[in-house]
């Protein structure tokens, strides 16, 4: 799985580069990166949200989805190959699906607002923004749970600890012999 995973990561990075190029060479939209507020110096406006997504929206959403996949793939790479069990893979896939769900709710909410001009509010923010603020932040919480709860199962097992302690003892012994 080790070699496959690094190829997946490489493929994700290449795909993201390709999307970045498509966005760079897409038809430009004036003020896509914000325009100065007509009244207040130092403030900028986003203007027409639909217009600035028109040529790149799909690429940008795909870019974000790939980024979410990359975060999960890299986290999996950080786990020793011998602990990448089917259960771990299932947890990681569930994490990715959960973060994709948050992305979908956020994007759908934003597109609905652009189409209708209507939005509800949740905990101080328009709902699509609330998905971005609370949802995206919480989207990686499963990774934290896997790390904290599964620490002795996936990250650093009792056997890992014993093996590392043994390695340290061997090195100390070798160093002592060298000094002699």
């Amino acid at each position: 799985m080790g070699r496959q995973l690094i190829f997946v990561i490489f493929a994700l990075c290449v795909a993201m580069s390709a999307l970045l190029l498509l966005i760079i060479f897409a038809e430009p939209v004036a003020g896509a990166g914000g325009v100065a507020h007509p009244l207040f110096k130092g403030m900028s406006n986003g203007g027409d949200g639909a217009a600035r997504l028109e040529h790149i929206g799909a690429y940008a959403y795909a870019f974000q989805a790939l980024l979410l996949a990359l975060i999960v793939a890299l986290s999996t790479l950080g786990i020793s190959e011998r602990h990448r069990t089917p259960r771990l893979r299932a947890y990681m896939i569930a994490t990715f699906v959960f973060s994709l769900f948050v992305l979908w709710r956020m994007v759908a909410g934003h597109l609905h607002f652009l189409a209708t001009g209507e939005t509800s509010f949740f905990m101080g923010f328009p709902t699509p923004t609330a998905w971005a603020v609370y949802g995206v932040w919480a989207g990686a919480l499963p990774l934290m749970f896997i790390y904290v709860i599964g620490f002795r199962q996936f990250i650093y097992t009792e056997e890992d600890e014993a093996e590392y302690e043994q390695l340290l003892i061997e090195i100390q012994r070798e160093n002592a012999e060298d000094e002699r």
């Binding site: 949200g49 940008a60 328009p126 699509p128 971005a132």
Partner: peptide, 25 residues
């Protein structure tokens, strides 16, 4: 905070939507 973000939404909705004024990328 809901009133504060409503004020921003009325002035320029994109500023307080997920991608803000600076845009998605």
């Amino acid at each position: 905070m809901t009133e504060a973000t409503s004020v921003i939404l009325r002035d320029d909705s994109e500023a307080i939507m997920p991608w803000g004024s600076a845009g998605i990328m």
